[in-house]
Amino acid sequence: MSQDAVIATLRKRFGETGFTVEHSCEGAVLVVPRNKLRDFLKAMKEDEELGFDMLTDLFGVDRYDRKPRFEIVYFLNSIKNGGRVTVKTRIDGMESVDTASDIWRAAEWLEREVYDMFGIEFKNHPDLRRILLTDDFEGYPLRKDFPTEGPDFDKPFVVEFEEEREGIR
């Protein structure tokens, strides 16, 4: 199924205002507003004609100088009908997105990674915790305002023994 056919089918279902199409060298990118995202993704999977049965990838991009600031990108793959489609949604820092983990279970860890790296929350996610970083890590490293050297790179590194901290020694 070609990308044009996918777009035509989706136009029938969601109308002219449901999503916009942008072009990059990746092909067509479907940009969906945040509040319609869940219905859109559900339709992508459940529609017989479309049948996007695999969520290949899900990740965030921090467009620091733009408004809205964050992009969440979904790579959908219709293995049975053939064809890949990129779906995007744009959100501001404080907004949360509906989870896709009940549509494709693969989203469970991927959304945790986005939360871990960008601090974007997913509503109704079954287990939204940090995945790659430790639970007590402060900040969201893949945001553009997070320094690569780490947040404490300009502070001296002091070794403190547990006993000293607790006043035993």
Binding site: S24, C25, E26, V29, T56, D57, V61, V73, F75, T86
Partner: peptide, 20 residues
């Protein structure tokens, strides 16, 4: 300016790098 992703079949499965 652009974005690209090319999937390949690595020994473990689908591998790709997405560049902005």
């Amino acid at each position: 300016v652009g974005e690209a992703y090319v999937p390949i079949e690595s020994p473990k499965g689908e591998l790709g790098f997405y560049f902005v």
